[in-house]
């Protein structure tokens, strides 16, 4: 336990009887009221998440050209008030991390996965990009949900979707990881408890990483370490829409080859026609092509199990057969997102 890192809200989480888990070396809240309840707070009203374990690096604007070379998306051409989801690629086109950039007039905030903060810092160092690591100086709170914007707009001006803003207390963007509207807010640790108290006074409920995972899965969003890894490219993960970079970038040669030859892995969405959950590592078949589940859980909104499955080649059949602990369970590939 003693080796685990904690956010500034650790004592606060314990005071709320949160169930804590070890996540990427951090002791983080898994749930407060239960994952399904918290899932529904976000889908039906609003919830907040302590995501201060995620890496936060401030980069000077002057390095934008060098940063743009390391990601598959175009960071230079978007307005200085935009947020951008992108992926750092290796020379072989695979994902080092998927990240969010918050673009401002004077600087850029890079938000990376907690499990990859060290890797991203090393990668930036190796490419002579300097940064100020804000992870331990600030907190990051995600406020998400159907009613999140109408609640938060009493506390701060709301930017357009996928846009950023800042004032003397909050640096934030209208982004999230749940499929609902909302904001992600970075603030100094001395201000966090007061911010959360205001949210709670307005009925926003605390949510843990358990519901963050069921929400992101239901919203068809990838999680690094599962749908994206050091061995999976954005083309393979079905994230071709992120390939907006107009110049040469690291890994571009392999990415272009994959698009051209279509000879690569394929990540697909599936649903099951039974109640058993096909969890990470479950093997399935589409005709004679076999795949492995990267993430799977119940969809609380749809009421049946869903997930992502990675195939070595393009699966020939939409009908799938899963081997769930020795039982054969049928499922289907889905072209559309789980939720509309």
């Amino acid at each position: 336990m003693s080796d685990l890192k904690t956010t500034s809200l650790y004592e606060f989480h314990l005071s709320k009887d949160s169930k804590m888990i070890d996540f990427a070396g951090w002791s983080m809240p898994f749930s407060y009221d239960g994952t399904l309840k918290e899932h529904n707070y976000v889908r039906k009203s609003a919830g907040y998440f302590d995501v201060s374990h995620m890496g936060r690096l401030r980069l000077s604007y002057s390095q934008i050209e060098e940063i743009n070379y390391l990601i598959c998306s175009e960071l230079r051409d978007i307005e200085n008030t935009k947020a951008l989801y992108s992926i750092f690629l290796s020379e072989s086109g695979t994902a080092i991390d998927d990240v969010i950039f918050w673009k401002f007039e004077d600087d850029l905030i890079l938000i990376c996965n907690a499990s990859n903060t060290v890797k991203i810092k090393n990668h930036l160092d190796a490419n002579f990009i300097t940064y100020d690591d804000l992870t331990n100086k600030t907190d990051l709170i995600a406020v998400q949900g159907k009613n999140a914007i109408s609640i938060v707009e009493e506390m701060m001006p709301i930017p357009d979707k996928f846009s950023t803003s800042k004032n003397s207390i909050y640096t934030y963007a209208r982004t999230g990881y749940t499929g609902e509207d909302g904001v992600e807010v970075m603030l100094n640790q001395k201000d966090t408890l007061e911010f959360i108290q205001q949210l709670e006074d307005k009925g926003v409920m605390p949510c843990g990483l358990g519901s963050r995972d069921t929400l992101r899965l239901e919203a068809s969003l990838p999680l690094y370490g599962f749908e994206l890894t050091d061995d999976i490219s954005p083309v393979e993960a079905g994230l071709k829409w992120t390939l907006t970079n107009k110049s040469d970038y690291m890994g571009k040669k392999i990415i272009d080859e994959q698009i051209d030859t279509k000879n690569h892995k394929y990540l697909k969405r599936f649903k099951l026609n039974a109640k058993q959950i096909a969890r990470t590592g479950t093997v399935c078949n589409s005709g004679n092509v076999s795949g492995t589940v990267t993430s799977g859980n119940i969809s609380p909104i749809l009421g049946h199990p869903i997930g992502f499955v990675l195939f070595e080649t393009n699966p020939p059949d939409n009908l799938l057969e899963f081997d769930i602990r020795g039982n054969l369970v049928e499922g289907n590939l889905l072209d559309k997102r789980f939720l509309n």
Partner: peptide, 11 residues
């Protein structure tokens, strides 16, 4: 039950 979290299906 607390360790398992929300139970969604029982065989």
């Amino acid at each position: 039950q607390g360790e398992l979290g929300d139970i969604v299906f029982v065989t």
